[in-house]
Design a protein around this nucleic acid. Structure first.
Lengths: 351, 351
DNA sequence: TTTTTTTACGCAATCGTTCCCGGTATCGAT
DNA sequence: ATCGATACCGGGAACGATTGCGTAAAAAAA
């Protein structure tokens, strides 16, 4: 089935004018008499003419659509960022094509190729946990494709970037655990090379150091798939529990990791927060309803999306190549709830 | 900044051929000698030529992109459906443009206009809670736009539809509450006119009737914005609690309603499941971690997305107008957890 | 009245691709 | 030598819209 739309030609034919006249009339050119304009405008209005965006794209050599690549949209953080992106994109007549990498490098590559073959005007991406080879992105960037990174950024590519204050997030979370009476604090993280992992871990380590707690690498666990697979989180937690000196708290450095840690601890019958404290990065609005209510580090996801899209627009609509790039860092928020609240007796006993 | 891609003209010029020959060589036409083909193919490969999809769209008068309108993607059910849609779309070379109505009729209209002006080949939609005027959709459908409804369907428009077995879902949930010892069962629902509301409520009523429980309209509450606004759910719950004969359980008929009911009951200090049983439609994977773990009716969201997209493809790629339409109904799943499990003593006392 | 200016419109190229017409060259058959 | 068939390739229109340029008619200036 075809869905035939009214074209400028149809209007021209119907009104006995040339297509150029109709086009100019619609764009309110000074070269067209007011009567003709009125005629055309009324006809267009009545038959609700809409310029064919595809023809325009071909002519203007821009598609007015951008690509967004994230690991998955069924993740509160990313869906909130996307909402921010879309709100700005929409207001500027851009259309957003969302692609999900599901934390797979191969899928990310496929998505990237697909998006570029769909001739997008710009790209927003938070790379997958698996991605260590940035050559394709570099090539794209080298060819002049406007790119803005957010969340999981790529330091070796020089362009605009938007992140939360991951260092401070990791620091705050860890300090909060320490202040709550936990001493042997483990962390379950994304892969080591990811920017967010490095930053959050740096905060974690700094907090330990600042509080005179020795860092123990056995307490640092990485999950290759960012918690997409429950088993890998389970494996990490198992290893932690098998240690001679078992940790008494976990700092999970990503949304999926946080909820899956809770899932596994509960499955194992460990009581949170008494046997194990838990805090993590998360943006779900369900965290307060969990058992126990989760203490979390929350990112300003929506604003991050807005800022990211605005930066991309800057790049796309700039006349000459941009050479000055900025990295925006947004504050995180520490929300204290039950999962880090030891029973008073115990806390006292420890101190 | 522009991102210039290799065109067929460039290849033609570089190889001293005409564009038609290059085009044909790339499409492996029989009219082209194997040497020429090889020449062109190799050149195209080496300089990684990709046909410009915009030019193709203009020529073929199809954009190979479809529009999807849902209330919000930050809702597990919808993000899962979208995943299903995208998996099929992607495999068929289609690109998915997602738009969110946020349960607002106005935004839905704007999105619809935007999508059609972007010349999509087809539309998938689950209408907003506010939508009662389907004239625009009817007009679109009348003009030949392929449309498939899912979840919140529009009965007056004759086309393919995909839904869960909402009647049975409502029935199962209610029967489960009854079997768990609850007798005065309230329901918090989406607006009355929505297809899913009607179906789920019908199941609820039938379950009451089948078990000899008289239906009480005071126990049926509607939330205009589908739970997007916490306050409206709070208002509904408040009204229920103010009744002389207070309900002892709630059946919430949508994702947001379910979690928000729990949120409010907890805020009020009511114990679930003892003072109030709670069950509802939900697709979040966090329900089992909640306090209490939520009993839910779960929909096969991903499959629903797949089926919906396949039906849309059928419509789009059919040569002649389709007149035979089907409504697929998929089974729901009842997951029993803590929020409907009264303490034994109480259950016994009641029986 | 003649010349110049202004007004108002049409022609045709362009964007990248496909495809309908052609056209030419080669070879075998007559 | 002529014809027909086959193989191979190019010209150019088309898709829908914009836009530089050309120009007729009308209006203004000479």
């Amino acid at each position: 089935m075809k869905f035939e739309a009214l074209t400028i030609k149809d209007i021209a034919k119907a009104l006995g004018l040339s297509t150029s006249t109709v086009s100019r009339a619609l764009r309110d050119s000074y070269e067209i008499s007011s009567e003709t304009k009125k005629l055309v405008l009324e006809y267009a209005e009545k038959n609700n003419y809409h310029p064919n965006p595809i023809a325009l794209s071909l002519k203007e050599r821009r598609s007015r659509s951008i690509g967004v690549v994230v690991c998955e949209i069924a993740n509160s953080y990313f869906s909130q960022v996307i909402n921010g992106i879309e709100s700005i994109a929409y207001n500027n007549g851009y259309n957003v094509i969302i692609a999900q990498s599901r934390e797979s490098f191969d899928r990310e590559m496929l998505n990237l190729q697909y998006l570029t073959s769909r001739s997008i005007d710009g790209l927003i991406i938070s790379v997958s946990t698996e991605t260590t080879d940035f050559s394709y992105l570099k090539e794209l960037h080298g060819k002049g494709m406007p790119i803005v990174f957010f969340d999981r950024i790529v330091s070796e590519i020089d362009t605009h970037k938007v992140i939360a204050d991951n260092y401070k997030g990791g620091y705050d979370a860890t300090v909060h655990l320490i202040n709550s009476g936990y001493r042997r604090i483990a962390t379950v993280s994304n892969p080591e090379l990811l920017s967010i992992t490095k930053e959050r871990l740096a905060g974690y380590k700094a907090a330990l150091a600042d509080n005179g707690i020795e860092q123990d690498d056995a307490l640092i666990k990485y999950c290759r798939h960012g918690g997409m697979i429950v088993e890998e989180v389970e494996e990490a937690v198992n290893q932690l529990l098998k240690l001679k000196e078992r940790p008494d708290a976990i700092f999970a450095s990503a949304d999926k990791l946080t909820t899956n840690c809770l899932r596994i601890l509960k499955a194992k019958g460990l009581s949170v927060p008494d046997q194990m404290g838990l805090i993590g990065f998360s943006n779900t609005d369900l965290t307060e309803l969990l058992d126990p209510p989760l203490s979390v580090i929350k990112q300003p996801a929506f604003e991050m999306g807005e800022i990211t899209m605005n930066l991309l627009l800057q790049l796309i609509e700039s006349k000459r190549p941009v050479t000055e790039f900025e990295t925006k860092v947004l504050p995180t928020e520490l929300l204290i709830r039950g999962s880090t609240k030891k029973k008073e007796v115990k806390t006292k006993a420890m101190v």
